[in-house]
Amino acid sequence: MAAILALDTSTGSCSVALAYEQRIFEEHIDLPREHARRLLPMIDKLLRQTGLNVDQLDAIAFTCGPGSFTGLRIGFGVVQGLAYGAGIPVIPVSTLEVMAHKGARDHLGGNGRVMPALDARMGEWYWGLYEFRHGRASTLIPDRVDEPARIAGASPRKPDLGVGSGWLAPDAVDFSPGRLVADLEPDAMSLLDVALPRFTAGQARPVSDVELAYLRSEVAWKKRERVRRR
């Protein structure tokens, strides 16, 4: 079995998981603003437990966005250093897809529609819509950023489950999912669940081909800056 390292730094918590020889090892901390100090020591701890070094990994999976810009860059920066240094490929996975997968697995028995939503600040949500059949996901609406009030118009099909921090303010949308788990966060174990089949399917890529998916584009951001300056 392949040795795959997975790491998630997209939100307030930080977690690392390692799949190796039918076993999964995990490290998790829930300390915002500690990602930069703690991530590499957590990775080192898992590698020591298995006796592996970075070169012996087959791939590194990571949440590539959306999420906290700085958090994403800490995670991706470490992925860049490790993958580039050891010459191993990477598996970028949407933060929202990881959340949807975790929600479907833990709350819908692997079947149903999940709408993950992260608070994007500035009155917007990062969101998407995923459908699961027997644990396998298909994307109904690819990840995007919108004011919550516009989501109903963009998503004709309503979810069975809403997950993530966006749903801490459920009244922002004018429909209600069957169930809500607003405190669900992405984590490296769930990321591994999504990433392992992709690795098997040959979908790992060179790290130099990968970009973060901030969703809030630089063009949109530039316009705001201009307004503020003038």
Binding site: A36, L40, I43, D44, N53, V54, D55, F69, T70, R73, I74, F76, G77, V78, V79, Q80, G81, L82, Y84, G85, A86
Partner: peptide, 20 residues
């Protein structure tokens, strides 16, 4: 700039780790 420092720091520190 803290966000800018993080990029070089994360890549530099982890590359050193990978290369031992």
């Amino acid at each position: 700039l803290v966000g800018a420092l993080m990029v070089g720091g994360a890549v530099g520190r982890s590359l050193a780790y990978a290369w031992q």
